[in-house]
Design a protein around this nucleic acid. Sequence first.
RNA 1: UGGGUCGUCGCCAAGCGGUAAGGCACGGGGUUUUGAUCCCCGCAUACCAAGGUUCGAAUCCUUGCGACCCAGCCA
Length: 554
Amino acid sequence: MSANENPVVPTNFIHHIIDSDLKANKNNGKVATRFPPEPNGYLHIGHAKSICLNFGLAAKYQGRCHLRFDDTNPEKESDEYVQAIMRDVEWLGFKWHELHHASDYFGQLYDYAVQLIKDGKAYVDSSTPEQIRANRGTLTEPGKPSPDRSRSIAENLDLFQRMRAGEFADGQYVLRAKIDMASPNINMRDPTIYRIRRVHHQRTGDAWCIYPMYDYTHCLSDAIEGITHSICTLEFEDHRPLYDWVLHELDTPCHPQQIEFARLQLEYTIVSKRKLNQLVTAKHVGGWDDPRMPTIAGMRRAGVPAAAIRDFCERIGVTKKDAWIEAGVLENCIREDLNQNALRAMAVLQPLRVVIESYPEAQTEWLEVSNHPQRPELGKRKLPFTRVVLIEQDDFAENPPPKYKRLVPGGEIRLRGAYVIKCHAAVKDADGRIIELRCSHDPNTLGKNPEGRKVKGVIHWVSESNSLPAEIRLYDRLFRLPYPDNEKNFLAALNLDSLTILEHGRVEASLAGVAPESCRQFERTGYFCVDKDSTDTKMVFNRTVTLREDWVKE
RNA sequence: UGGGUCGUCGCCAAGCGGUAAGGCACGGGGUUUUGAUCCCCGCAUACCAAGGUUCGAAUCCUUGCGACCCAGCCA
């Protein structure tokens, strides 16, 4: 595939920063990044952008990229999420050079906190959350110091040790950094860095009853791991002074540079773990891996190739601009990959019986068709042609709209890879519904055009007797509005027709036994992949994406 | 009315003082036993606005305007 041989890897402002760091021999010419998810939900397309960025940087600069779980809030975290995250990162195609957990550093983090206290840079506060909030001030007014701010170092040390020892109730005390209650940056108004919480931690169990906060933990974890460039999203820009403050006050192995970029915003989707969790919990979807979910697991189940996600992340770029990506960009990446790589197959989603009266009843011809019209190296397969075939209900119209290119009464159509047939009659049931077509075939049209006339269209088909029953799940976008988050309640933007199940599909017999996650292009209808719900008696396919349809719809 | 950041084509996005890359979308044409793919062609005298500096500005300066983020013992 020469198309992907010379990918033009776009550059972005982070490359510029690193390039100049390298030129100045900062960090001894090394580059180390990390992807730091909190294990409180499944990874989504927004995380994919961050993963591609961080692992991509390490690859580009021959550096390292760590996977680090930011597991400092045991109330929301679980091992299920840890496992899912590792699975998703690997599936996306990345290998971490080191695996870490912020919880691995709890001991060191505690020692650093003691040092901060000894230096007079942190104090134990007995204020309630309400008092802390009230004293924090507002965006335009400075905060007021807590009465505990002047507590002695000795007393702070004693109290902090006893916090750890479990002598106090949850919430009774917190440890705060002593910075500046009048700072125009609210994050610098003595942020809480430790809280008491008697919660079982998925990794450290009940070893701790105090847990460090993100701002305190993240920078130190980066420094401990020797991260050189700590990349995060824009909402942490205001936290950078705090990141730098902690590392400046403490004697750490290094001082990583925090760089912020704009998080992904994709039309018709939502990338908030809280809201995605809500969709799962309230059963608006089948689970975190529901094919409609923008999660990595969901897209994987839908049949989206990892390479398409990587391509997408590359195309959208990395900037600090608040941007919205049109849904078509992702779809294009998916189609581009699948068009190149998916084998073709014949499948009829909503069958209509076609009896070819001119074709011998007992006869079966094995017709050779290409697995991929543009890639002969992918071989050919044989399809059984029989007297009774099934075509798509949509491919026949008694009263065709203008420019209809399919079968009509008295008209001819090419059955893809087979004969040209002509429709003589439509058989209807008592309700007037068409249940069968009576046709004849032109035996002289196999592999060649009929003489003296042009056939306007080609449709797909499957042998009635020699095909497999299949359930086809047609997925559409989960939200009917491009910006679900703009709604007071995002659930109101849900597309109630996001899933259509077709129970009576038929697919060509060669698909028997094809493994889950295998993708095929069902000619003329779209890309589909085998779902894990498939059984020996009934295959199940998920529609990944439709084919482009360039014509005006009726 | 505090602080932080951003503003180049419908949507992304290069550009970093020398005269507007690319992708998606869109429009037109061609090939085609998938109305798919593929292939051509078109698509910003213009870079939020207004001033200024300069031989020359999207790029530098000034002043406006607009958008986003921040007041968790969440991350």
